[in-house]
Amino acid sequence: MNIAVTGLNATDNPGPGVPVIRSIKESKEFNGKIIGLVYDSLEPGIYMENLATKCYQIPYPSSGLTHFYDRLELIHEKEKIDLIIPTLDSELYAFIKLEDQLNRLGIKTFLPTIEQLNIRGKDKLFNFCKDNGIKVPRNVLVNSVQELQKLPDDFDFPLVVKGIFYDAQIVNNIEEAVSAFQKLSYKWGFPIIIQEHVAGDEFNVVALGNGKGSLTGAVAMRKLYITEKGKGWAGVTINEKKLFEISRLVIEKTKWQSGMELEFIKSKNDNEYYLLEINPRFPAWVYLATAAGQNLPYALIKLAQGEKVEPFENFTAGTIFVRSSWDLITNIKTFEKISTLGEL
């Protein structure tokens, strides 16, 4: 079986491609090739030994879907891809839109629908949670500085200003809020989400939905070390029933088909878990789930193949990941190949 995976950008803001591949290769059942699909010739996963059998550079989906599809088709002609696992938020719409065309080529995917993808969007999550009895920080959507200055009276600082796709900033007064609004709207567009700030510890869950409303597996993690960019650089698996109950409910209500990451904060005020975000793909720490006993990326492959997958029932709490920085060495000839030929 030949599996193509994106997101080999194992940088300080890591994509999930490398841990997804690591998980797949660790499965004793896996027998096949891994094809890395990269957007940049400096994605570290390209240069990791024994990771991808072959890597191909692909254009950004924003360059046009036809162009994007043509490149995938060309790679498929050479590599006979059975399944593509996109791992980056920004490319998901493109892959979902191309799902039928890819299927016709014989390439499977295991993705949510556009509608499911939108439900968990930063601008829709509040209503979804409210409708389903899940605690979520209150938010308002704003499209202008004027709207920002008319926030409800009971919205007290500090607040969180969030971009529609990425980035968030905690602000302590209206001046900081305006500055964050301008910065984030310039970068990511509108609307901007103004969210109540909940103080507390961060918890994350990686989950896999089978597309029929059932949770195939889920592992919870507490971040032990957080970088300045807010990325978890170390974490430990934990066994907290409440987190799994909420995750199961989200998968059930959305009938989610794919991996997802749920980000929670446990409020210092009321000790309750608030759902901050749902990321529509596996997180960069997904290998921790594999190491703890739930190989969710490989389970996704089986689901995509139409196999029946029994839900995972447990995992080892207390499994720790510590991310590291390691310089990979290559030579100019290798770099030349991926840069000029677009494959390596």
């Binding site: 993690m221 974490g235 430990v236 698996t237 066994n239 907290e240 446990k266 709490a317």
Partner: peptide, 8 residues
């Protein structure tokens, strides 16, 4: 001591 429900 490891409290598995919170990771503390």
């Amino acid at each position: 001591l490891f409290l598995a429900s919170t990771g503390e």
